[in-house]
Design a protein around this nucleic acid. Structure first.
Length: 420
RNA sequence: UGGGGGAUAGUUUAGCGGUAAAACUCCCGGCUCUGACCCGGGCAUCCUUGGUUCGAAUCCAGGUCCCCCAGCCA
């Protein structure tokens, strides 16, 4: 993907890691993935991840998959799935035949859950959500083992199968990994792997009433697809030990590695899906593609070229330090791309009528005006000129200072498009 | 006060032991049938303290500050 006009090859720690893996022969073909949850539209923050994942794959001759992380049917919709695919495509990326859904792997994931139970590494917990929370401990205090933690394999298997069969209501039981309730890493305090959710899934419908959690689905999905570099944002760093623990205890077909980078923060801009969803849901904006939204759809509707977004993503770089990018950089990228292609037009927002007294009355002439000063191919258009014209109010000043180059009393000015 | 991660110009990034680089912003100036674009020029005690070294932004140790984690969200 050539990002015209601004293109030195970028280098960052992710690309360095990949290059090293390639050089050392640890991986033959780079395979990355962009894994959005279809619970909303994509925004400029996702663009950073998309450009990184697809960009890296293209640069190293590998491939990038588009995978919908659809493990929570209570907040996901087909509309979002369609919009996300359209936005990624619009941004200029192509996943080819590699379009996947975590839900494609539900049967396999379920089998692996039973595998874990069989090895005594997972158990069905009957505690309520509140009880589980209370027993989890705090950041500084260890948690307490559940009374159901020592349940036998046979009973766990039976209960888990009945969970799948729909015998229990939402929240009645949950399948948990048996790791360490005293771990300093909260994600290792027997994390939930499967929960009961009697909800209709946009793709699997009512085939399931138990769904895998992000932790139980992500790494294994990566492994199934042969992802070599699973790149995500920093807040998942604490999940990596669990990601690795699961891959280590399951007979997965490949061994992906997770790497984290800092998510994008833009000045004066909300990039929280939760908040953006609220704005749309409560009608504060006219939908996800409202031009005021920082969504890809909103930017597109505002007239922002995809190339400008790609350029922006390239310029902000990829690192692990928290950052708050200046909105001016985005604006600069947009202007730079638009300046090269946008046809020029004239308009007055606050009109001030000007009568050219030494120009004949009742006469009108048609003048040519170039559509783009630096691009003859964009041709010309015609504008009408006469005795009466309108200029911007700010372009006139009766008693103007020395450096005022606009219309003033007793001074000469030239009109654009009618220079002479 | 548990665990994990991070600190380089106003902002974001580069630098990987040899004397701080780029982009954006901002300021000064030039150019201009868009005061746009463009073109000159300016803007850094590399968080801190100590150590190792001929030499440290880079290595080591201690501080300080910032971010993330207690969903059956992702």
């Amino acid at each position: 993907m050539a990002d015209e006009g601004s293109g030195e090859a970028t280098r960052d720690f992710i690309r360095d890691i990949i290059q090293a893996d390639l050089d050392a022969g640890r991986v033959q073909t780079v395979v990355t993935r962009f894994p959005p949850e279809p619970n909303g539209y994509l925004h400029i923050g996702h663009a950073k991840s998309i450009c990184l994942n697809f960009g890296v794959a293209a640069e190293f001759g590998g491939r990038c998959h588009l995978r919908f992380d659809d493990t929570n049917p209570t907040k996901e919709e087909q509309e979002f799935i369609d919009a996300i695919a359209a936005d990624v495509k619009w941004l200029g990326f192509d996943w080819g035949v590699h379009l996947y859904h975590a839900s494609d792997y539900f049967e396999q994931l379920y089998a692996w859950a039973e595998h874990l139970i069989g090895k005594g590494l997972a158990y069905v917990d009957d505690q309520s959500p509140d009880e589980m929370r209370a027993a989890r401990g705090t950041l500084t205090e260890p948690g307490r083992n559940s009374a159901f933690r020592e349940r036998g394999v046979a009973e766990n298997l039976d209960l888990f199968r009945r969970m799948r069969a729909g015998e229990f209501p939402n929240g009645a039981r949950v399948l948990r990994a048996r790791i360490d309730m005293a771990s300093g890493n909260m994600n290792l305090r027997d994390p939930a792997l499967y929960r009961i959710l009697h909800a209709t899934h946009p793709r699997t419908g009512d085939a399931w009433c138990i769904y895998p959690t992000y932790d139980f689905a992500h790494g294994q999905s990566d492994a199934i697809e042969g992802i070599t570099h699973s790149v995500c944002t920093l807040e998942f760093e604490d999940h990596k030990p669990l990601y690795d623990w699961l891959l280590q205890h399951l007979p997965v077909p490949s061994r992906p590695r997770q790497y984290e980078f800092a998510r994008l923060n833009l000045g004066y801009t909300v990039l929280s899906k939760r908040v953006l969803t609220t704005l749309v849901r409560d009608g504060h904006v006219n939908g996800w593609d409202d031009p005021r939204m920082p969504s890809i759809a909103g930017l597109r509707r505002r007239g922002v070229p995809a190339a400008a977004i790609r350029d922006f993503a390239r310029r902000i770089g990829v690192a692990r330090a928290f950052s708050l990018v200046d909105y001016a950089l985005l604006e600069h990228c947009i202007r730079e791309h638009l300046n090269r292609s946008a046809p020029r037009r004239m308009a007055v927002l606050r009109p001030l009528k000007v009568v050219i007294e030494n120009y004949p009355e009742g006469v009108t002439e048609t003048l040519p005006a170039v559509n783009h000063p630096d691009d003859p191919d964009q041709g010309q258009r015609e504008i009408t000129f006469g005795r009466e014209i309108y200029v911007e109010r700010d372009d006139f000043m009766e008693d103007a200072p020395k450096k005022f180059y606009r219309l003033s009393v007793g001074r000469e000015v030239r009109l654009q498009g009618r220079c002479r």
